[in-house]
Amino acid sequence: MNQDVKTTIREFIVENFLFGDTSVVFDDDDSLMENGILDSTGILELVAFLEKEYGIRIANEEILPENMDTLNNLHRFLEKKMKLEQAS
């Protein structure tokens, strides 16, 4: 896990939800929902992407704002998730 996780997810978000619009500036701590970048269907698309990209399974109860609403949250969540997967 490294800084690239955030870059990868950021690229996915810009590509998939902003359709390449780079004029929308969002920081690693900005809420994706409140800034209108993700809608609720978008969350499911994001989950599908993360599962495929990182080979993990995300349970419904893990789909929470504290895990997914900012790039930093996503980073932390994935880090934890990958460690668990390695341990098991």
């Binding site: 409140e34 809608d39 789909i63 704002p65």
Partner: peptide, 11 residues
């Protein structure tokens, strides 16, 4: 489990 999805709640 019957509760509102946190993201919808946030919406």
């Amino acid at each position: 489990k019957g509760s509102v999805s946190p993201f919808w709640k946030q919406f």
